[in-house]
């Protein structure tokens, strides 16, 4: 069983870099406020006052009238961190946010693309591949509604956004560390193309629609990284009291048995097991074993020792571990003070 923290440790550097990038993207999207709503009428009437022949007079000008047209713009941002996956994983969901940064209501079609250059593998689109985060949980759940093009294309008001999952399977033939990317694209149904293109009469409130700086289409890519390697650690304890029983009383001996096992593909290089001796117990000298063989307490040529530099800690150097190495068993004993 791989725990989240173990997986994160395997690719922590990449994850941090992605989180930083995502924050920047989100900030960029925030700056794109939709602005004055489509259909807003801006009227301007100036006036002039003057003295003529001793009479003060004020007149107003003709009124100039402008109706704000619709600007078609959309932004897609990735909301997921880089996803750590295993070969053959099914239904791994990347979360994206699609935001209408135009100034009118707009309908968008959504699409996905996994054939992206520069990565190591192409994720396999699930069927269906796109879901709405209908329950706003941030995770793909049974309550989330699948997207069907032309049937439930998202309609977003100005500044409104919708969270969308891109769901992929991971191919079986991938290696540890491989990266696969998946792209979500949102396209305005009013039109896409060169910024400034006018779509006559296609705007809200009878205005013309004008393709904005985003071209009416936007996309973002999410990333999967294969991180098959994980080390499973299980620790058990056995108490033997001085009276032949198993009560944890002063003077009782505790035998700790720790099993370590690599699962998945790859190599856990230079693995080191460290375990502090618990408070209120004292290490029993000469009690460390690795796979049944005794290790001395001193820091010497063998794989283990008792490190007393700060707190008393068992240290066993396991070296490079793979699945083929099987279960490693470390045992040591302590007495209750």
């Amino acid at each position: 069983m791989k725990t989240a923290s173990q997986r994160l440790a395997a690719a922590g550097q990449r994850t941090r870099a992605c989180v930083f990038a995502c924050v920047l993207l989100a900030y960029g999207a925030q700056a794109n406020a939709a602005g004055t709503a489509v259909g807003t009428v801006i009227e301007n009437t100036a006036s002039v006052s003057f003295d003529l022949g001793g009479t003060r007079t004020t007149i107003v000008t003709n009124t100039t009238t402008l109706t704000v047209a619709e600007r078609v713009d959309v932004v897609v941002t990735l909301a997921s961190p880089q996803l750590l996956v295993a070969a053959g994983d099914a239904n791994r969901a990347l979360l994206f946010t699609v935001t209408n940064t135009g100034n009118g209501s707009e309908t968008f079609s959504l699409g996905s693309d996994n054939a992206i250059g520069g990565d190591d593998f192409d994720p396999i689109a699930a069927v269906p591949a796109i879901y709405f985060d209908s329950d706003a949980s941030g995770d793909l759940t049974a309550a989330d509604v699948a997207y069907t093009p032309g049937v439930n294309d998202p309609v977003l008001a100005a500044d409104e956004s919708v969270d969308v999952f891109l769901v992929n399977d991971i191919p079986a033939a991938v290696a540890n560390g491989d990266i696969g990317r998946s792209r979500l694209t949102a396209s305005s149904l009013t039109g896409t193309g060169t910024p400034g293109t006018v779509v006559v009469g296609a705007g809200d409130a009878g205005t013309d629609a004008v393709i904005g700086t985003t071209g009416g289409e936007a996309s973002a890519e999410g990333e999967y990284v294969v991180s098959d390697i994980a080390v499973n650690v299980v620790k058990t304890q056995l108490v033997q009291d001085p009276f032949g029983g198993s009560e944890p009383v002063p003077g009782a001996t505790i035998t700790y048995t720790v099993t370590l096992e690599v699962v998945g593909s790859g190599t856990a290089t230079a693995s080191v097991f460290r375990d502090p001796i618990p408070t209120y117990t004292t290490f029993l000298p000469g009690s460390i074993t690795l796979n049944g063989a005794s290790l001395t307490d001193a820091a010497d040529a063998d794989a283990g020792e008792l490190d007393t530099a700060t707190a008393a800690t068992i240290v066993v150097r396991l070296g490079d571990l793979t699945l083929a190495d099987g279960t490693q068993t470390v045992e040591f004993q302590a007495t209750i003070d």
């Binding site: 007149i59 003709n62 100039t64």
Partner: peptide
């Protein structure tokens, strides 16, 4: 009264023989 007529006519008939103001955007 004359001044009030000027205000009410606002760039209309009276402007013909006084001052014109036109706006453009």
């Amino acid at each position: 009264v004359l001044a009030m007529i000027g205000v009410l006519l606002a760039g209309g008939a009276l402007a013909q023989d006084s001052v014109e103001l036109t706006s453009s955007v």
